[in-house]
Simulated scan of single mutants.
Amino acid sequence: MERKHYIDNLRWIAILLLFPFHTAQIWNGGEYSGFYIWSHTNNFMYAFSTAVYPWYMTLLFVIAGISSKYALKKRTNKQFIVERSKKLLIPFVFGVLFLVPVMTYIAEIFFNGYTGSYINQYILFFTKETDLTGYKGGFTPAHLWFLLYLFVISMIALLVIQIQRKRFPKLCVDKFSYGMLILLFIPEWLMLYVLNIGGKSIGQFLMLYLTGYYILSEENILQKLKQYRFISLGLFLISVSAYTYLYCFGNMRNELGTGLFVFFGWTGILTLLGVGQLYLNFHTKLSEYFSHASFPIYIIHQPVLVVVGFFALKMSVGITIQFLLIALLSFTATIVIYEVVGRIPYVSMLFGIDRRVK
């Protein structure tokens, strides 16, 4: 089967987008809007992060579902489980124990005026009462929630797939019209309320994973998305404009806003899959590098960014310079760390790096 390089490219591009996205969080919509450090509200940064959030994580779950379709054609169930454990579960446990406390240490200093040692803060990390965000200190899975969710969802989906293969072996889902594809945002919206933990729904992401596996991996469906890409783009641009304005400046926090949030994210996925087939289906040394590095970059990037941001905010320079310094320096430092740990036996596995990949 010919590899769809645009799927790989969409994944690493979305992950690299986390550098400007999480940097913008430092100037998001209020001290308690959610990040480990905060300067003040900047409307452009607030709008930017609001416009990115609804589609980039959902896209990653859809891509994971599509990728698992191809993976299970070449791997046994046991091989799939072992691979996912090495890539997701081991880095999650390691990251929560050794990477995430770095961010909560910074948060304790920044928001709570903490003056104790890192070791004492490490004890606080496991004992302090917390809302699981860690934005003001205390235990949190932080950005590594994605690894845990993806592992759990992968295992649930594997069970669903095995049942489907036995009970409904001739399941056909490639006849969806484009209009039906658009309307799939409705079941996603409904599933948003299933096992929603801190605003991150296992039900929603499982739905997206299975949609990627069963529907958006089908060639007929992908051709429809390419054919109707301009309609998807139009719906995406209208919904992103409406949602961003109403959320940031209209204080929209109701059920209609939630529906618009889901619709906006879903049309973004359809647009990217349609447009990506035309413009992102390439393979270069750079794209291959970031395809292999994307998950380790995801694991490493946020602790680095929070530390860089903590010191950058002390500099007497404008927002633009601070933003560029934080995004570029954290990106550079993340790549350096990736290159270093990737060369250390056993340690590389803790960061989800496959040392067999050249």
Rank of each mutant, 00 (worst) to 15 (best):
F168H: 08
G318D: 12
K166M: 02
I299L: 12
L99D: 07
F282L: 14
A312K: 03
S239L: 08
L89N: 06
P169I: 05
T267Q: 14
P141H: 01
L10S: 03
Y193M: 09
G179T: 11
G30P: 02
K200M: 11
L208T: 06
R75I: 02
R343G: 12
R11P: 01
Q277C: 10
G138P: 00
V341T: 11
Q322M: 15
S232A: 13
K166C: 00
R84N: 13
P296S: 07
L190G: 09
V308K: 05
L17I: 10
A242L: 15
I221D: 03
V62N: 06
Y193E: 13
F126V: 06
V240L: 08
F249K: 04
E219Y: 08
V317E: 12
T76M: 08
L72D: 10
S201M: 05
D131E: 06
F139C: 05
Y213L: 05
L184S: 06
I37G: 04
Y118V: 12
N251T: 05
V93F: 13
L206N: 02
Y178K: 08
S294A: 15
L10A: 05
Y118R: 01
L329V: 15
S49I: 08
T320F: 13
V317K: 08
M155H: 04
D131H: 05
L208A: 11
Q79F: 04
G34F: 01
I202D: 02
H283Q: 14
I335S: 00
L97Y: 03
T50K: 01
T130G: 01
A51P: 00
T332C: 13
M315W: 14
M349E: 09
G95Q: 08
V275D: 01
L17P: 00
N9A: 09
I321H: 10
S49D: 07
L192S: 12
L17S: 11
P141Q: 03
G250A: 12
C248R: 03
T133Y: 01
N251W: 13
F94R: 07
R165E: 15
F168G: 00
Y6S: 05
C172T: 12
G250P: 02
T211Q: 06
K4T: 08
N254S: 13
E219G: 06
A327E: 11
L97I: 15
K136E: 13
V160H: 02
L329I: 15
S241A: 15
E255T: 15
Y243A: 05
K87P: 01
I13V: 13
K69V: 09
N196D: 14
T244M: 02
S294K: 00
L17Q: 06
K69N: 15
E2T: 15
Y114K: 07
I63D: 07
Y193H: 13
Y247H: 11
S291G: 14
A242F: 08
I106C: 08
W12T: 04
I238E: 09
I326S: 07
T104D: 01
Y178M: 13
Y214P: 01
D8N: 09
G199Q: 04
G352D: 02
I182P: 02
L10G: 01
I297M: 11
R165P: 00
V240S: 14
M57Q: 08
G257S: 10
V52A: 04
V62H: 04
H5L: 07
V173F: 10
K358Y: 11
M1W: 04
T115K: 15
V306E: 10
V96M: 07
S177I: 11
L184P: 05
E219K: 14
